[in-house]
Design a protein around this nucleic acid. Structure first.
Lengths: 221, 221
DNA sequence: AATAATATTTAGATTAATCTAAATTATTAG
DNA sequence: CTAATAATTTAGATTAATCTAAATATTATT
């Protein structure tokens, strides 16, 4: 079944909105997330129900059916693989890729995606640390937490710094810690909670507890 | 101005149809080339006229205006760059890339295209030997001719073999001559019109006149 | 439990892109 | 130069995706 761009985008939105455990996605949040009116969202929910991709209980909300979830995951897979391509091959920055990937994710060609996957070396996470579903739709679990909260040995990607002190940001930058960089928690000192982290698979850096508290990482489990 | 996929495709079709020197593209050929009805083509011609991308003389045909030609060339540039990407980076065959490039050519992002161009090493021709317009819309001229007709020193790409004799095709395959392969005319013997060609920038091969007559090459001038 | 507030759905309209069938204009053959 | 043929255009309808405004259902509050 060939879906339109809009249908694909709605499916993806329903998937993301139900990730937080809410099996049922209500019309209003769907409309908000799609930047459109509740009436339009409702129209689309009807269409997707007719196509048996979701079930819709009136005045309750929408839930993905197996087929709908499969399609959503396929789109997410494409989105994230293209993001890896943009960052690793075309030297885009971590934060410049989303809009372009939003377009690229709608290209239809299974062969293209499997070739791209191979070309990129079968990555398992995108530049934001989000996991990439494999061809079957399976993906690794990830957790977003501060460097203070993650166990020694955990690998992940820096996704935000909960602070805008320019001296702190400059310091982090100096030791190679920027958004999108790969990191491993190497050790944690019981005495003061400071951590050593391996940055970008290269140098090891020491980070104090107050700084680690502000360093948010998407960890790959 | 943001055009729809359909508008972009019509512009491209008008460009290609007027390449043969016909400044005016008639509605029927346009409809045929777009696999649609003359009525639909007529509707679109009206729309594109309103947008000042073409001029339309009733019962005569459509002609690209400067802005329309610019846009057509930008789409063709994207199409051909993506084709190079698919063949050179994702190991697609020469003849498998068109449909995917038809989709990729509509991705909007000037930065993406300039980065892709750089990543591919600023190619000047696509895998079919067709020239790639540069950012300003300028492109090298090419000519399609048989290996017998091209001057010594000419470089180009094999685009067809005007014969389906399986023994001939097998022979060509054995000496590395396949669709999409780069070739240079190295020498031509006056005695019998046979030519030596450098195949894929590597081995030099000898080809008799009857065979050379059937070997069609897109030559880059 | 009644009512106010909120969320959801329906109704009716709009725009882009398409279609078929009919009408109109050009071209060409006698 | 007219009539037949072919090409082009118009008219009117259709479908997908959207909108606004009005109607309806659910939930939360007193």
């Amino acid at each position: 079944m060939q879906l339109s761009f809009t249908e694909e985008n709605y499916l993806k939105a329903i998937y993301h909105l139900s990730e937080g455990g809410n099996v049922c996605v209500n019309t209003n949040s769907l409309a908000e997330s799609m930047n459109t009116s509740p009436a339009s969202a409702n129209d689309m929910v009807k269409r997707l129900s007719q196509k048996k991709l979701i079930v819709h209980q009136k005045y309750k909300g929408a839930t993905l059916l197996t087929k709908g979830e499969e399609m959503a995951l396929r789109i997410i897979r494409k989105h994230r693989l293209w993001e890896v391509f943009l960052v690793e091959k075309l030297s885009f920055k971590w934060d410049e890729v989303h809009e372009i990937a939003e377009q690229l994710e709608h290209i239809h060609s299974p062969l293209l995606i499997s070739r791209l996957d191979k070309f990129l070396g079968y990555p398992t996470v995108d530049p934001h640390g989000d996991p990439i579903p494999n061809e079957k739709g399976e993906m690794k679990e990830t957790v977003k937490a501060s460097a203070s909260a993650l166990a020694v040995g955990t690998k992940g990607i820096i996704v935000s710094v909960n602070n805008d002190d320019s001296i702190l940001l400059k310091h982090l930058d100096n030791i190679g810690i920027k958004l999108g960089v790969k990191i491993t928690i190497v050790d944690r000192m019981k005495f003061d909670g400071s951590v050593s982290v391996k940055v970008d698979e290269q140098e090891t850096q020491f980070i104090s507890k107050p700084i680690a508290d502000n360093l948010m990482i998407t960890a790959i489990l």
